[in-house]
Simulated assay, not measured.
Amino acid sequence: MIVVTGGAGFIGSNIVHGLNAAGRDDIVIVDSLRHARKHLNLTSARFVDYFDKDEFLDALPGLEPLEAVFHQGACAVTTEQDGRYMMRTNYTFSRNLLHACLRRRIPFIYASSAAVYGVGNQPFREADNEKPLNIYGFSKLAFDQHVRDILPRSDSPVVGLRYFNVYGPRESHKGDMASVIYKMFTQHQSGEPVALFQGSENFLRDFIHVSDVVKVNLHFLETRKSGIYNCGTGLIRSFQELGELVARRLGGVGIKAIQMPPGLEKQYQRYTCSDNSTLRASGYALGFVSLDEGISSYIDVLEDNPS
C-alpha cells in the first residue's frame, strides 16, 4: 500500500490520480474533509481506505504492508499568522509521521516549498538563501532542517521536494491560495478583467504544472534516493507575461493593475527560480511542460468544469 496525506488536496489528489494511471490502486488517503468540496478532487480516483488526519497516526501501525508515504498534507496558507497552529500542522505532525515511518523503514517523500528561500535574483540552490519571509516558509524550513539532521542515520529513503509555483487542475478549493491562473479564469467568468499587482512585469516566478510535480514525486518512489531537492522548471516568467498569456487564451480580455495589500508586501517573493542541478543529478531526465502549453491545457480543463 501507498499512503498519500493531503490526498484530497491539490497536489495530493493529483499524485493519487498519477498513481492510478501507473496501475496502482492500493492507496490510502489521509486528509481533513472539513471543507467537503475537496472530495470532488477524488472523483474517479481508485483507493482502498481513507483516514482523517487526526486519527491517522494512531491507525498507522495497523497498516500492512506499506511501501511508501507521500506526505503532502499541510497548512499552505502563506498569510496565516497563527504561528503555533502553523508549526503544529506543518512541523510537529510531519516530524511525528516521519519518525513513525523511520521506525518501520518506510520511504517518506514529503512536500517542502520554495517559500524557504528569501529575497534573491539568482536561481536558488538547496542550501543557499534559506531566509523565509513568512511563518509558512519557516515551518517548511524547520522540517527540512530536522530531515537534514536525521538523514545520515536513516535506513530508508527520505525525500523533500521544494515546490515552486505550482498550477493546474484540482486547485479550485484553495480559495485565496489558488494559482494566479485560476484566479484570472474566475475573474473572467465573472465578467471582470484579469487582475495583476502593480509592478507585475518585475515579479518573476518559476511556474510548474502539477503534472510535472507528480512525475518528480513518482521518480523518487522508483529511485529510492534521499535528500532535499528543488521542484521547479528552472525557467522564470513575469506575472505580466503570465497575465497576457491567460488574457490571450481567454480571447483578449482586459488586464487591470491592482495595489498589493500592505500586509503582503514584506513577505512577498518577487523572484523565484529553481536551480535543478541536484534534481538532475538524482537521475531525473524528463522535460517540463512550458508555461504557454500549461496555461492553454489548464484553461481547457477549467472551461469543461469551472468548479
Rank of each mutant, 00 (worst) to 15 (best):
G6P: 06
G6A: 04
A8D: 07
F10C: 13
G12V: 06
G12C: 10
S13H: 06
G18P: 14
G18E: 07
L19Y: 04
N20E: 05
G23S: 07
R24W: 01
R24D: 10
D25F: 03
I27A: 12
I29H: 08
V30N: 15
V30T: 11
D31W: 04
S32E: 09
L33W: 08
K38W: 03
H39K: 15
S44R: 08
D49M: 05
F56D: 14
L60D: 06
P61E: 05
G62C: 13
G62V: 07
L63G: 11
E64C: 11
E64A: 15
Q72E: 14
T78R: 13
T78C: 14
D82R: 06
Y85W: 03
M86W: 00
M87K: 11
R88P: 04
T89P: 12
Y91D: 10
S94K: 02
L98I: 02
A111G: 12
S112Y: 00
S112N: 07
V116G: 01
Y117L: 04
V119C: 06
G120N: 06
N121Y: 00
N121E: 11
P123Y: 00
D128L: 01
E130W: 00
N134M: 02
G137P: 03
L141P: 07
Q145K: 14
V147G: 14
V147D: 12
I150H: 05
R153L: 13
D155Q: 15
S156T: 08
S156E: 02
L161G: 10
Y163P: 05
G168Y: 00
K174S: 14
K174I: 09
D176I: 04
M177R: 14
A178K: 14
M184E: 03
M184Q: 10
T186K: 14
T186P: 07
H188S: 15
Q189H: 08
E192W: 03
E192Y: 04
L196R: 06
L196I: 03
S200F: 02
E201L: 01
F203Q: 12
F203N: 09
R205P: 04
D206G: 05
V213I: 13
K215R: 15
K215D: 15
N217S: 15
E222V: 01
G227H: 02
I228G: 03
T233A: 12
R237D: 08
F239P: 05
L242A: 12
L242I: 09
L245S: 09
A247I: 04
R248K: 15
L250M: 12
G251K: 11
G251C: 11
G254C: 07
K256T: 10
A257G: 06
M260I: 02
P261D: 08
E265D: 06
K266F: 00
Q269G: 09
Q269M: 10
Y271F: 09
C273I: 00
C273G: 05
S274Q: 02
S274K: 02
A281R: 07
G283I: 01
A285Y: 01
L286W: 06
L286V: 07
L286F: 09
V289C: 15
E293L: 05
E293Y: 01
Y298N: 13
L302Q: 07
E303A: 12
D304Q: 14
N305I: 03
P306I: 04
